[in-house]
Write a protein that binds this DNA or RNA. Structure first.
Length: 510
RNA sequence: GGUCCCUUCGUCUAAUGGUUAGGACAUCAGGUUUUCAUCCUGAAAAUAGGGGUUCGAUCCCCCUAGGGACUACCA
């Protein structure tokens, strides 16, 4: 990799047509990681050349998503930078001279065909057995363009204000190849590339032209993008050649796609919540019909876990380490370790990553976050006590909210008895034994778990009562449930007074 | 259909000519625990198929099969 030779400048170039899905976020992540790794710049460029598909709020969503993930651009709209503007719509006037250049060098031509004529051409070609007709070196000769029309007619048409597009004139039978950083040499015969429109009749460039011009103008060193762009990469390479920029063309790296967990195809925005998990980093509300699509952030995922999971979808560090923070990913990242094949998304593993990252949090951090979910607990309990509850239940949690759920019996006075648990293990015959046990435990001076445990065992031995009988009853009385953290730890936490209250309450109310 | 890309356990992947093909998630079985969870130990589980090249192929080449992307005046 000749990354040392030139300044690394990479861009993430989404189109503001809606929310970013996790594949897009991963592309941004890899760009970010690569930039940071080589002390380069990470640039955000908004590719809004299609005004028809513009979606209100999409750009804001993109920026907010990146911000949440910690992928802050060095240059971009509303951030600025010396290569701006960073919205293609605001660069509109810059593209015209480049189009002219291509027209003058005969690498491109005007085309006047209406959508209906194009449609007609495709239909008649299909009828005569061509499965996917394209505007190319063969068909262009029978279409209405500056190659087939007399020069003065072309001029007249343009002068009279007739709508036109500019198409690239792809040469016949020429090998176009480039070395992809991830895939190696990729080559395509130019006869298989069509005469793509590079400049639309509305005066805007298409993606292909804008992309190449901007990457060149912004001195982009590496283009790291999804595999869906691989088929048009030869066109882009050819465009660099037409402009005479072949020596300054960026290095390309086409990332494998993220696939649906089951079934076929790549994960798409339309999958929404249909598959049982979010496909968007943060919540998206459709401004037109108010449809809500859930996001990882709102579902309680840690951004560290989300980013960690995304990084591992198509990349690995080559070691056994799987849990990384952003900085760790920067240090470990390399394009050479990005795989070639598509990766099926695994929501279960995403949760596992969350669990791992949650365990890395200090009790203080967990405290700060759970009180954001429920600050009621602050009015009834001290911070130290809550910290102890966190310590008791944290290993049972995947999300912050699980701490609250697991810690519930310790964070409210009232005990809610689980009916199933009661009917299964609450034995009325043993109520006197439980009462006696309570009495015994109350005699402990130093109410710590070791003492409680000792006393408990001494009691059941003396009484000859089965541990499996009395322990569940004690647990039901204290927590209302049959499962939970260590009973002795739990008792120490709530203390002797509450223990007594709860046992009495259970005995009297069951 | 055409063009291009891809192919190791169910899933994510490691091993870039010589390994008992490794790890993680999931699964299953033990152990720890009062219980659930955690944790520990173990098990089952893969080189798509066929040809080459080579002393030797997961690894290099070819063919087949399968999967994917693209095939717009969308990106």
């Amino acid at each position: 990799m000749d990354t040392k030779e030139k300044l690394v400048r990479v861009r993430f170039a989404p189109s503001p047509t809606g929310p970013l899905h996790i594949g897009g976020v991963r592309t941004a992540l890899y760009n970010f990681l690569f930039a940071r790794k080589f002390n380069g710049k990470f640039i955000l460029r908004i590719e809004d050349t299609d005004q028809k598909r513009f979606v209100l709020g999409a750009e804001k969503y993109i920026i907010e998503s990146l911000r949440w993930c910690g992928l802050t651009p060095d240059e971009g709209p509303s951030i600025g930078g010396e290569y701006g503007p960073y919205r293609q719509s605001e660069r509109k006037s810059m593209y015209e001279s480049f189009v002219q250049q291509l027209l003058e060098s005969k690498h491109a031509y005007y085309a006047f065909d209406t959508p209906e004529e194009l449609e007609q051409m495709r239909n008649s070609m299909k009828a005569s057995g061509v499965p996917s007709p394209t505007y190319n070196s063969i068909t262009r000769s029978s279409m209405k363009n500056s190659l087939t029309l007399p020069a003065d007619e072309t001029k007249t048409r343009i002068a009279s204000g007739e709508k036109y597009v500019v198409r690239i004139k792809m040469p016949r039978n020429q090998e176009i190849k480039f070395e992809d950083e991830i895939r190696g040499w990729v080559s395509v015969n130019s006869s298989n590339v069509d005469d793509k429109v590079i400049f639309k009749s509305d005066g805007m460039p298409t993606y292909h032209l804008a992309n190449v011009v901007d990457d060149y103008s912004m001195k982009i060193s590496h283009v790291i993008r999804g595999e869906e762009w691989l088929p048009s990469a030869p066109l882009h390479i050819y465009l660099y050649e037409c402009f005479g920029w072949q020596d300054k063309a960026p290095i390309f790296a086409h990332l494998p796609l993220i696939l649906k967990p089951e079934g076929n195809g790549k994960l798409s925005k339309r999958d929404g919540d249909r598959l049982g998990f979010p496909v968007f980093p943060i919540e998206w509300i459709n401004s037109e019909n108010k449809d809500i699509f859930s996001g990882y952030r709102e579902q309680g995922f840690l951004k560290e876990a989300f980013v960690n999971m995304l990084a591992f979808l198509g990349w690995n560090p080559g070691t056994d380490q799987e849990v990384f923070d952003l900085l760790g990913l920067v240090n470990a990242f390399s394009l050479g370790r990005v795989g070639k094949s598509g990766a099926k998304y695994d929501f279960l593993k995403t949760k596992w990553f969350n669990q791992q990252h949650l365990r890395l949090k200090t009790n203080q951090e967990i405290f700060d976050n759970i009180i954001k979910i429920d600050d009621q607990i602050l009015s009834s309990y001290t911070k130290d006590y809550i910290l102890s509850v966190i310590d008791l239940v944290k290993e049972r949690a995947i999300f912050y909210k699980d701490i609250l759920i697991e810690g519930r019996p310790f964070l409210q006075d009232e005990v809610f008895f689980n009916e199933k648990a009661v009917s299964k293990k609450w034995d009325v015959e043993l109520v006197p034994v439980l009462a006696e046990l309570c009495k015994q435990l109350l005699t402990i001076d130093n109410f710590k778990k070791d003492q409680v445990e000792k006393k408990f065992h001494a009691f059941i031995t003396a009484q000859g009562v089965g541990l499996g009988k009395i322990m569940p009853m004690l647990r039901i009385a204290i927590t209302g449930n049959l499962s939970g953290p260590s009973m002795f730890d739990s008792l120490e936490l709530i203390g002797r007074e509450k223990m007594e209250q709860r046992i009495n309450y259970a005995i009297n109310n069951m």
